[in-house]
């Protein structure tokens, strides 16, 4: 097998890697915000529940969560395992990443000086207006570097979907490595991940620049 066929074959799995990546971001980013707001709630029941969920999701391996979400329903209730593995994989990744994103959002929200809220109140902003017009944009700007960190990790974590037999790029790489008794597919995989992450970092830097208006 030439390097070219190898790379092409692995690129066919890249589509599935991308599917995990983008769908996870799509669901985890808003879900994380919801969890962060729950965590900051003044009702003890809600904030307690949110911090419990976060502690479980951060305290257990993603691999375990993947297995639990994929095979758990079958073992517990006899519900058939999904043939389209993308569904359980994205569910597991989304809830796991939502927990991390929630903590990043919280760090951003809590870093806002009280003066900002007081000034908004004096200017006659309502609580909702204060949050969305004044606090939220600054929070986003402030947490962007930590977000980039998490998102870059997500790109690399997609390879963990192999645990539940989801045929993403790295799984195909392993298959080729096996049938060809060769180490090259791992090098190809490394290049793929690096280029993907270089693109992610580039985009995130542009976003940071675009949002520099909100920098305090």
């Amino acid at each position: 097998m030439t390097l070219m066929t190898m790379a092409l074959k692995m690129a066919s799995g890249l589509e599935k890697t991308c599917a995990i990546f983008f769908l996870t971001l799509l669901f985890a980013l808003p879900l994380g915000m919801v969890v962060a707001l729950m965590r900051g709630s003044k009702y003890k029941v809600i904030s307690g529940a949110a911090s419990f969920i976060i502690s479980v999701l951060r305290g257990t391996p993603l691999m375990l969560q993947l297995i639990a979400v994929t095979y758990g329903p079958y073992y517990l209730f006899g519900i058939s395992v999904s043939r389209n593995k993308l569904i359980p994989v994205v569910v597991a990744f989304s809830i796991n990443y939502a927990a991390y994103f929630a903590e990043i959002y919280r760090s951003g929200i809590e870093s806002m000086p009280v003066g900002q809220y007081e000034a908004a109140q004096v200017l006659g902003y309502s609580r909702v207006q204060t949050f969305f017009k004044i606090i939220f944009p600054q929070v986003i700007r402030r947490i962007l570097p930590s977000m980039t960190n998490e998102i870059v990790t997500l790109v690399k974590d997609t390879s963990m979907a192999f645990t539940v037999s989801y045929q993403e790029m790295f799984t195909i790489g392993k298959q080729i490595a096996n049938s060809e008794t060769s180490f090259i597919p791992f090098v190809v995989a490394g290049v793929f991940y690096y280029v993907f992450n270089a693109a992610v970092s580039f985009i995130m830097r542009r976003v940071e620049k675009a949002m520099s208006y909100y920098k305090i």
């Binding site: 095979y71 079958y74 058939s80 395992v81 999904s82 043939r83 593995k85 645990t163 539940v164 037999s165």
Partner: peptide
């Protein structure tokens, strides 16, 4: 083990 789980779970 995971092959057999997939089979048992109708995947």
């Amino acid at each position: 083990t995971s092959c057999f789980t997939e089979l048992a779970g109708n995947a």
